[in-house]
Simulated scan of single mutants.
Amino acid sequence: MLKHLKVFGAAFMLFAPTLGNAADLYEPPIVEAPPPPPFIEPAPASFGGWYLRGDLDYHWSSLRGTEYITYGGSGGTDRFDTTKLKGAFSLGAGVGYQINRHLRADLTGDYWFKSDFEGSTSGTCGGGSPCVSTDKSAYSALLLLANAYVDLGTYHGITPYVGAGIGGAYVMWDDLENAISGGSTVVHKGSKNWRFAYALMAGASYCLTQNLNLDVGYRFTHINGGRMFEYASGVAPGFDKGINVHEARAGLRYQFGPGNPNCAPAPQVVSYEPPAFEPPVYK
């Protein structure tokens, strides 16, 4: 009997650790989740940069008034009864700098092609008889301006703006042909001179690429008055009292460097998703 108990006790001691391990809960190894990606503050938008621009426009001009000197018994000053200037095209170019997201400035030069002038006068001719005349000429101009603009924010790639410019215009009048009804034609040599000018602008630019903008807008330009034509046959010099010009403009602006900040794409937010939870496995 004692012998059997010893055998049973030895067997129990042999198998007891195995039975205890079998009853334990199996736990998978702990895998730590990777830490979330570090937050990197986006670099500030790149402001500033030189740009070049080119423009095409169609403009309509109007004279603020005219006068000319006459000589003789009833000499003095007189003016055209009617004046009309036809529309014309112009080409422009410039260089500028984007100071920040809302402010830029540039220097521009525009050449206005000839705008035809038609006028008429009335008075007395030789012998005191009344007569009328028709007058034809044309003017062209070189306009140089220093401009500043305020960009009013960007909406779906469109940036409206307002601006102003100041500078000068070199106005070139062609010879004036004064044709008297039933009589001869008198030619007055046209005058050329520099004059003060200013401009007011409004428009919008559209982002075509990171460096290229389409610019469409309106510009009002005022040119001070000046000499219009020279003396001939007892009349002149003649003067215009200033020219007002309305311009419909379109052009391109190419910005060097990192690109236009108003064209920068919206930052992409990358979300972090922790790994899926794995339930414990029992065996």
Rank of each mutant, 00 (worst) to 15 (best):
P38F: 06
G238E: 02
M172D: 13
A43W: 04
I69D: 07
G182Q: 14
F8N: 07
G73I: 08
A250I: 08
G226W: 05
F8L: 15
L107D: 01
Y51T: 01
N224V: 02
F229C: 04
G20L: 15
G183L: 15
S61I: 01
T209Q: 03
T124A: 14
R79A: 13
A105F: 12
S90T: 12
T221Q: 06
G92A: 04
A264S: 05
G153Q: 11
G238K: 02
P37D: 13
F89D: 05
K192G: 09
W112K: 06
L176Q: 06
G257L: 08
K283P: 12
A248I: 14
D110L: 14
K6F: 13
Y97E: 09
F229K: 00
P237T: 03
R249W: 03
P28G: 08
A88N: 15
Y161R: 10
Q98C: 03
A148T: 15
G182P: 04
V245C: 03
Q255P: 04
I180T: 01
F39K: 09
M1R: 11
T185A: 13
G123K: 11
M172V: 07
K283M: 07
G168K: 05
T134E: 15
T134A: 13
L143M: 09
D240W: 00
Y58G: 10
V31G: 08
D110V: 07
N244F: 05
M228K: 00
S120L: 01
D135R: 08
V31L: 11
K6P: 00
E230M: 04
D116A: 15
E41Q: 14
G127W: 13
P267R: 04
L212T: 04
V187Y: 11
I69A: 09
G226K: 05
V281Q: 13
P160A: 12
P279Y: 08
Y68W: 11
I30Y: 10
D116W: 05
A276S: 13
W112C: 01
E177G: 08
Y139N: 15
F239N: 10
G153T: 14
I40G: 01
A204E: 10
L63P: 00
F47S: 10
G72L: 00
R249H: 02
M13W: 06
F117I: 12
C125K: 06
G75Q: 05
W112E: 02
P279F: 05
N21G: 07
Y58D: 02
D55Y: 10
V235A: 13
G48N: 00
G163N: 10
G72Q: 00
N224F: 02
D110F: 06
G242C: 12
I30G: 02
L14A: 14
G65S: 10
L14N: 08
I166L: 15
E278R: 14
A236R: 11
D57N: 15
T154P: 00
A23C: 05
V162C: 09
F39Y: 14
S46Q: 11
Y155D: 03
V95C: 07
A264T: 09
A33F: 03
K6R: 12
E67I: 00
K6C: 09
F113W: 03
A93N: 02
S120K: 09
S133V: 01
F89K: 06
Y58P: 01
T221F: 04
G119A: 14
T185L: 10
A138N: 06
V186M: 05
N213Q: 08
P130W: 15
A236W: 03
K136A: 12
